[in-house]
C-alpha cells in the first residue's frame, strides 16, 4: 500500500517536473546572442587572456572569485574533519600490522606512486593548454597518496608539511588577487603580460593560480584521507 502511494506520488511529481522543464530552453542556442556572456567568452576569451583552454580562462579569470570560494569550501571541509577528529584516538600499530599487503602489491604501489604524481602535476601545470586544471590534477595527486596508504603502510604522510603546503598555496592565491588590486584596478585581475599562445608561460596569472590550486587541493585531500584512515571513529 505504501509502495503504491509513493509510486503514484512519484509519477505525479515527475509529470509536473517534465511539464515545467519542457519550457526551459536547455540545449538551445541561447548563447548565440552576441551580448550574452557565454558567446563573449567563446569569441574573445583566447585573445583577451591568452589561455588556449576557454574553460580555464572562465574559471580563473572571468569567474575567479567563485573559484576562490570553492577552494575555501574544500579548505573548510578539511579543517572541519580535523576538528572533529581531534578528540579521536589514533589507530594502534598492531591493528595495522595484521592487514599488511602482499609483496606484489607493495612493489607495484611503490612503483606507481611517482608516476601518478607526475601525471597529476602534468594535468595542473598544463591546465590552460589542455583539458584539466587545478582541481583535477590535485585530486589525481591525492589518489596517488591514497594508493600509498593502501599498498605500502610503513610510509607515513608528513601531516605538518601537508598543512604548510596547503596554507601557503591558499595565501598565494589570495596574494595574487591582492596584487591584482594593487597593480591593476580590481581584485583578481590578470596583470601579468599575456605571452605567446600555446606556450607554457602564457595567460598571465592563470598558470600560477592553477599551480597553487593544484597543490592546495592535493594536500587537502591527502590530509583528509590520512585523517580518516588513521583515526578510530
Amino acid at each position: 500500500m505504501r509502495i503504491l502511494i509513493s509510486c503514484v506520488l512519484l509519477v505525479i511529481l515527475s509529470l509536473g517536473l517534465v511539464f515545467a522543464l519542457e519550457q526551459a530552453p536547455f540545449g538551445s542556442n541561447q548563447i548565440d546572442n552576441a551580448d550574452k556572456p557565454g558567446r563573449f567568452y567563446l569569441n574573445q576569451g583566447m585573445e583577451k587572456t591568452g589561455a588556449a583552454n576557454v574553460v580555464t580562462s572562465v574559471v580563473v579569470t572571468y569567474r575567479g572569485f567563485d573559484t576562490l570560494g570553492e577552494v575555501t569550501i574544500l579548505f573548510i571541509a578539511a579543517i572541519g574533519l580535523g576538528a572533529v577528529f581531534h578528540s579521536r584516538k589514533k589507530v594502534k600499530r598492531y591493528e595495522k600490522e595484521k592487514q599488511s599487503a602482499s609483496l606484489i602489491l607493495q612493489t607495484g604501489c611503490r612503483f606507481l606512486f611517482p608516476l601518478i604524481v607526475l601525471f597529476g602535476t602534468y594535468v595542473f601545470i598544463h591546465g590552460h593548454l589542455s583539458p584539466g586544471g587545478g582541481f583535477q590534477g590535485g585530486v589525481i595527486i591525492a589518489s596517488a597518496f591514497l594508493l600509498l596508504f593502501l599498498g605500502c603502510e610503513e610510509k607515513k604522510i608528513p601531516m605538518k608539511s601537508m598543512n604548510t603546503v596547503e596554507s601557503l598555496a591558499g595565501i598565494i592565491f589570495v596574494g595574487i588577487g591582492l596584487a591584482g588590486l594593487y597593480w591593476g584596478e580590481s581584485f583578481l585581475e590578470n596583470f601579468l603580460p599575456r605571452g605567446m599562445d600555446y606556450m607554457l608561460l602564457s595567460g598571465g596569472v592563470i598558470p600560477i593560480i592553477y599551480i597553487a590550486i593544484g597543490f592546495k587541493v592535493g594536500a587537502e585531500l591527502a590530509g583528509i584521507v590520512a585523517g580518516l584512515i588513521e583515526r578510530n571513529p
Binding site: P131, G133, F135, Q136, V139, S143, L146, I224, V225
Partner: peptide, 28 residues
C-alpha cells in the same frame, strides 16, 4: 563535449569518494 568536467567527475566521483566511503564502511 565537456572534457574538463568529465575528468573532474571521474577522478572525484569514481575514485576518491568511493575510497572514502569504503574506509568509512570498514570502520562502521
Amino acid at each position: 563535449q565537456a572534457p574538463d568536467v568529465a575528468m573532474a567527475e571521474a577522478s572525484i566521483g569514481a575514485a576518491l569518494t568511493t575510497a572514502i566511503f569504503v574506509i568509512a564502511i570498514k570502520k562502521t
